[in-house]
Structure formats: C-alpha cells, structure tokens
Design a protein around this nucleic acid. Structure first.
Length: 194
DNA sequence: TAGGCCATCTGGTCCT
DNA sequence: AGGACCAGATGGCCTA
C-alpha cells in the first residue's frame, strides 16, 4: 500500500497541503533542530515525514472503516430490537432513542405481567387475573403515562420514567417530545390498557 | 426555514 | 501497536 506513495518527496511536509489536522501542526513539520538535521541527513533514516503522514492517513482510513462497521453492527442490533417489539399501527420506524426507551418499558411491562400472574397463581381457588390493579388503573391515552408507571412501583422496581430520559423527573413536559404513537404502542401491549 | 434524526469523520482514551 | 469504544463536529435529508 505504501508503495503507492513511494515516489513522493520524502522530506516534504506539503503532502497534505490543506490539512488542518494535528499532523500538519505537529512539531514534525517545524524546521528541524541542528541535531535533528544531522540525524535526517543520515542514510537509512527509518521513515520520511511523508511516509509517516501516509501511514497515519492509512491508519485513519482503516479506523474510519472499522468505526463505520461498528455503527452498522449497532444499527443492525437496533433493527433486531425493533423486530421483537410490538409494531405500531402506522408502521413508522422508531427512532434509536424511542427504540431503547420503548424496549425498556416493554421489558418492564412483561416483568410486571409475569409477577402479577405469579401472585395470582399463588392464591388458591381464585381465578387468575392477568392485570394488576395498577395496570387496570392506567390512565387513558393522552394522560400522564409517567404517573401511571410510578403508580405501579409500590411493590416492584418499575422504570423511573416511561418516556423521559433516565433519571429525569416524571413531569409531563419531560416526555412531551416523544411521539404519541410510541406511548400508544407501549400501552397497547398490555391487555386492557386502552 | 428551523429542528430532529442520522451517517460519517475524527481525535482521545482505554484495553489487549 | 493496534483495535474498540466514545463523544464532539459536521453536513445531508426530511418534516412541520
């Protein structure tokens, strides 16, 4: 690969004349000190400045490629996550942040469903009830979904938020930016929510 | 046109 | 040394 640049002037710092990155600003391109000049005049100097630039450039290109692949893998994983989440009626693709938040709530809702079912199964002679009181008392669509999730937190670790970012207070304005259909999709997962 | 979302590039940091 | 991971910057595309 480096052979492609083998005919480049080995002492030139102008190989990337318009480069503003740290390499062009580095002391490597400053006028060499007398001791350095002696070393540079020696035969067999390891690598010319231009070669170093080319090596760095190639390294950067490889790193860019790896980073691209890494992000593609991340997006593939997000797509796989979208695939196992309940679909929305309008089939609009969830954004990345919506996917993560929705998955968080979805997992929590599944856990709650299992927990309530186990509780009901433990009571002999009573028919199983799949919905917990707190879920049955869920607000109607359009009302505060975060207060709903908070109401179910008395006996289990519910999410501290439904649509807001982690750690943020459960205030309506915190999730107002979320798409409405994301909330509806989450609620529609739990039977009887709306 | 502003704002949101996204892909990509880039440099820094940490780990093997 | 090289790769993985991360966050900031940037520019393109889309929608209200």
């Amino acid at each position: 690969m480096d052979s492609l640049y083998s005919d480049i002037d080995s002492n030139s710092c102008d190989f990337f004349p318009h480069s503003e990155d740290e390499e062009s600003r580095s002391p490597r391109c400053a006028s060499p000190q007398p001791e350095q000049q002696k070393k540079q005049r020696r035969r067999g100097r390891a690598r010319s400045d231009a070669t170093v630039q080319v090596v760095k450039k190639n390294r950067r290109l490889k790193a860019n490629d790896r980073e691209r692949n890494r992000m593609h893998n991340l997006n593939d994983a997000l797509d796989a996550l979208r695939g196992v989440l309940p679909a929305f009626p309008d089939e609009t693709k969830l954004t990345k942040i919506e996917t993560l938040r929705f998955a968080h709530n979805y997992i929590w809702a599944l856990s709650e469903t299992i927990r309530i079912a186990d509780l009901q199964a433990g009571k002999a002679g009573e028919p199983p009830v799949l919905l917990s009181p707190c879920l049955a008392e869920a607000p109607s669509p359009g009302s505060d979904a975060c207060s709903w999730s908070s109401s179910g937190s008395s006996s289990s670790s519910s999410p501290a938020y439904c649509a807001s970012s982690p750690g943020s207070p459960a205030a309506p304005e915190d999730y107002s930016y979320l798409r409405q259909d994301a909330l509806y999709g989450f609620r529609s997962f739990v039977p009887g929510i709306y």
